[in-house]
Design a protein around this nucleic acid. Structure first.
Lengths: 343, 343
DNA sequence: TTCTCTACTGTGAACGCTCACAGAAGCATG
DNA sequence: CATGCTTCTGTGAGCGTTCACAGTAGAGAA
C-alpha cells in the first residue's frame, strides 16, 4: 500500500509504529497484543486497525529476550529418522502432539538428531532457549541427550519410560506389561497352553515389559516357564519371520504365539503359512500395537491397541504443566485388546 | 560447581559474567564468540576458559534481536505428513539438507503445516523471523504458503518447480522431462512400439513434465499419439494397479509401459501379473524415482534415478546464497537411467 | 467535599547481545 | 619526532519488546 515490496526486505514495522498509527502508547499496544486486559474498547479497536494497516507482526526475538519464553516446543528425535518415519504410530503421535499444542497456539518444531554431531548442535540450540520444552521420542536406553537436557534444566517429557534416568524426568507410556498380560490371558482363555513369545529388543522398556507380562500370566496360570518358547526380535517383519522359524523348530507343539509388535507378527504369519500351520486353528497369533499392519495381515491380527492419541495429548499436557511450574510426572495409560481373526 | 541445579532454572550466565570472569570486556568476549578476529591469544584463552567455567551459552534471542538473523533454517511441509514420511525419497532429501546445513553449523527445523490452521501459525512464526530461510517441499500447485512467504520477503527455495509462482522464487528440480525422454527412448530401443504411460497427478510439475517427455519422444520417433495409451495416477501403488488395468483394457496390444513412479510401477507389475503378462517379455515396464520399491519389485524395475543427494545440497546452496544477498535461481539437475530387469 | 477504588494509559528501565567508534599500544616509515 | 598503519581493547548505544510503576480520570462511598 505505502511502499512496494521489491525483493529486499524493508524494515519491518515495530510496536512503536503501531502505537503512533493508533495514537496510543507502546504499553497499550503491548497490552492488546497480550490479551487486551485493561484496554478500552476504543483503544483496542484503534490498535487492531493500526496492526492491520501496518502489517505488524511481533518480533519474537525481542519478546523472548525479555519474557525468557519462546512459545514453541520441540519434538526431538534422537535416532535415525527412517526408523520413525516408517512407523505409522509415530505419525499418529506427531500429529496428536501438533494438534494438542495448536490448541494453545504453540508451534511445534521437529528436530532430528540422529548423529552425534547433530545431537551436539541441537542440544546447544535447545539449551540456548529456542524452545520452552521438549517432547522426546527415543526408544532406546541410555540416551545421552535426555540426560544432558535434564541437567540443563530443560522441561522434558519422554514418550515411553526412559531407561537409566532417574525419576526426575517426565514420561508418558502405555501400560506395556498390562497389555501383554491381557493378550496372554486371552490366548489362555482360548484353551491354548503352549504359548510362545517373540519379544522386542530387550534394551527397550517395551521389550522388557511385554515379556514380563507374558511370564507373569503364565506363572499365575501355573504353567511351566519354558525358555524354548521365548525368542527375541527387533520389531522388524524379518525378525518376526526368523523368530517364528526358531520357535517352530524348538517347540513344534506350540499352539499360540504372542508377538510384541504387529510388524513382527506379519513375519510370524508368513513363516507359519510356509510351515503349513493354519492360523488360528493350529496356532493362534497375538500382536501388539494395532498398527495398519494388523488389519492388512491375513488373517487380521488380534492385537493390543496403544492409546496413541491419548499418549500425545498427555505428553503435551504434562509438558505444559511443567512449563507452568509443576513437578515432573509419569503417566501410564491403559491398553486395549482388539479381537480379530488371528486369535 | 558453584551452585546445585535443583529443579528451577537459575539465572543463566551472560556475556557479562564471562567477561568479568575472564578479566576482559563484553566486546572481547563477543569477538571470541564470533570468530576470534582481532583478539590476542591471551584474551582468547582467558575467554574460552571462562566460558567453560561458567557454562555460558549465548542467548540467541538477544543475538537475533540485533543481527536480525536466527541462524536456523526451516524445512516446511505444507501437505499431510503421511504422504512424505512414507516416501523414501523424502527421507533422503531431509537427511541431505540436514547434512548440507550442518556443514555451516545451521540447525534445521522441520515444520509441518498440513491444515489451514497450522499453515497460519507456521507462516506467522516464520515471518516473525524465527528462521532465516525456508526449504519448501510441496508437490502440489497453487500453494498459498509459498506465495505468502514470497510476499513477506522470506528467502525460499522450493523442491520441484512451483506452479503458478513467477520466477521470483528459487527452486531445484530434477529434469523430469529429460528423464522421461530417456526412459521412452530406452523402451523404443528395445523395439517396443505400443508404449503406454501411467502419469502422475497432472497438477504437479512432475506429472506434467514426465508426460510431456513421453509425448515428445513418441512424436520424434514418428509414432502416432494414441490417447488410449495414456492414463493418470496419483503416485500411489493402487492407482498404478488401476491404471494398468485400464490400459490393458483399452490397448491389449501394448508392449511397454512407462510409469511415472516406482510405487505406481509396483501396482502395474501386480496388475500385469494377474493378467498373465510376462515382464519384460510381453510388456516392458519403466519406472521413475529409483526408490527402494524399484529393487524390491519382481522383476526389479528399470527406472530413472533422481539425484536426491544433489537436489538437497543444491537447495541448501541456493538458499544460503540468497541469504547472502544473491538473486533467486532455478537449478535443474540431470537424471540417470538405471537398467534392471523390467525393461 | 474528600477519600478510595477501579479502569485505563504512558514512561523508563530492563533483557543480553552486537556494532560502530574511539582509543591505546607497538612498530615501521617519512 | 611526527605520522601512519595494524592489532587489539573497552564503551555507549540500540535492537523491539515486556514489565513495573506512576499516574489520570471517573464513579461511588464516607
Amino acid at each position: 500500500m505505502t511502499m512496494s515490496n521489491t525483493g529486499g526486505r524493508r524494515r519491518a514495522p515495530t510496536i512503536h509504529d503501531v502505537a503512533r498509527e493508533a495514537g496510543v502508547s507502546r504499553g497499550t499496544v503491548s497490552r492488546v497484543l497480550n490479551g487486551g486486559h485493561y484496554v478500552s474498547p476504543a483503544a483496542q479497536e484503534a490498535v487492531n486497525a493500526a496492526i492491520r494497516k501496518t502489517g505488524y507482526v511481533v518480533n519474537r526475538h525481542a519478546r523472548s529476550l525479555i519474557t525468557g519464553r519462546s512459545d514453541s516446543v520441540g519434538f526431538l528425535l534422537t535416532e535415525p529418522q527412517e526408523r520413525f518415519f516408517e512407523d505409522p504410530n509415530f505419525n499418529v503421535l506427531l500429529r496428536g502432539c501438533t494438534q494438542a499444542l495448536a490448541a494453545h497456539d504453540i508451534p511445534l518444531l521437529l528436530m532430528l538428531a540422529g548423529t552425534r554431531d547433530e545431537r551436539r548442535r541441537i542440544t546447544r540450540y535447545i539449551t540456548a532457549g529456542h524452545v520452552d520444552g521438549v517432547l522426546l521420542v527415543s526408544s532406546h536406553s541410555g540416551d545421552p541427550v535426555a540426560e544432558e537436557l535434564r541437567a540443563a534444566g530443560v522441561p522434558l517429557v519422554a514418550c515411553g519410560k526412559p531407561i537409566g534416568l532417574g525419576s526426575k524426568v517426565s514420561y508418558v507410556a502405555a501400560d506395556d506389561r498390562d497389555g501383554a498380560r491381557d493378550m496372554v490371558r486371552h490366548l489362555l482363555s482360548l484353551g491354548r497352553r503352549r504359548i510362545g513369545v517373540v519379544t522386542g529388543p530387550l534394551d527397550t522398556p517395551g521389550g522388557v515389559e511385554r515379556l514380563a507380562g507374558y511370564r507373569e500370566v503364565l506363572a499365575e496360570a501355573g504353567l511351566p516357564a519354558d525358555e524354548r518358547l521365548v525368542v527375541s526380535g527387533d520389531y522388524s517383519r524379518a525378525s518376526g519371520e526368523a523368530g517364528a522359524e526358531r520357535l517352530l523348530e524348538r517347540a513344534p507343539d506350540m499352539d499360540a504365539v504372542f508377538v510384541a509388535s504387529d510388524l513382527m507378527a506379519q513375519g510370524v504369519l508368513a513363516a507359519l503359512h510356509r510351515a503349513g500351520k493354519r492360523v488360528p486353528q493350529d496356532i493362534a497369533v497375538g500382536g501388539f500395537d494395532d498398527s495398519p499392519a494388523a488389519t492388512a495381515a491375513t488373517p487380521a491380527l488380534t492385537t493390543i491397541r496403544q492409546p496413541w492419541d491419548r499418549i500425545s495429548s498427555e505428553m503435551v499436557r504434562v509438558l505444559l504443566a511443567q512449563l507452568g511450574g509443576e513437578e515432573p510426572a509419569a503417566v501410564i495409560l491403559p491398553t486395549e485388546l482388539v479381537r480379530r481373526e488371528s486369535a
